[in-house]
Design a protein around this nucleic acid. Structure first.
Lengths: 110, 110
DNA sequence: CTTATTTATCGTAATATTGCAATATATAAT
DNA sequence: ATTATATATTGCAATATTACGATAAATAAG
């Protein structure tokens, strides 16, 4: 097969998986970190920052955008990309809750 | 092509990407949540919990294990899987830091 | 030893991802 | 209008992922 069976899981599970999947590539992590570093959410010198060709970077940006992790607004001939805080917030809360639950359980069974 | 160029990125970036990638599938999110829910970190009734065949579940468990997100210990004929807290901790800290930085910046440029 | 139970591995088909050259599109500047 | 600049899209090859049936491996029970 090869196609993910998304319909069998809850919306919440799929939502987290979409975010995680988008971050599941070092280039996209690097893009997110670059967007963090640059104060002004400057655009496509991301290409100069990464060891990848322009079409490849453009594709990674598209995936981050589709997942809702970044936003982009046209700025003349350039495009201004920046992190969508809401997505990061979701991940932070998700792992925060899990982390807290694990600590309170103190499960040392394995 | 098709192969990820991991060698061009930092170890930290690759490490986060590995964790995120492993969680980038709803079945694996569901497995993690099931392991959270069950007090005793019970094993392979995960198969009964998920709408996937046993070999598929086994494969997903292997990927979670390879990524360091879960641990497994043999318990007779069964296997006891449970979450590796350290991995969750890493993710929680990572997104916590980003979230905090974003809040302090209040960047509303896009 | 044989049989059941549980989990892992192999093999394979379907599909997805990664990466880039070539090309298209869109705005800015001259 | 022409040219330069920035980004997106297309097309394609290489590789990876997803899913599962069939089968293997390993322990437990009889």
């Amino acid at each position: 097969m090869g196609a993910t069976k998304t319909d069998h899981f809850t919306d919440k599970q799929n939502a987290i998986a979409v975010l995680a999947k988008a971050l599941g590539h070092p280039a996209r992590i690097a893009i997110m970190e670059y967007l963090m570093k640059v104060d002004t959410c400057i655009c496509g010198d991301i290409v100069n920052e990464l060891p990848l060709a322009q079409p490849t970077v453009s594709q990674h940006l598209k995936e981050l955008k589709n997942a809702g992790l970044i936003k982009g607004s046209i700025e003349g001939t350039a495009i201004c990309y920046c992190i969508d805080e809401k997505a990061i917030e979701k991940l932070q809360v998700y792992f925060g809750v899990i982390s807290k639950k694990l600590n309170s359980k103190k499960n040392n069974c394995c």
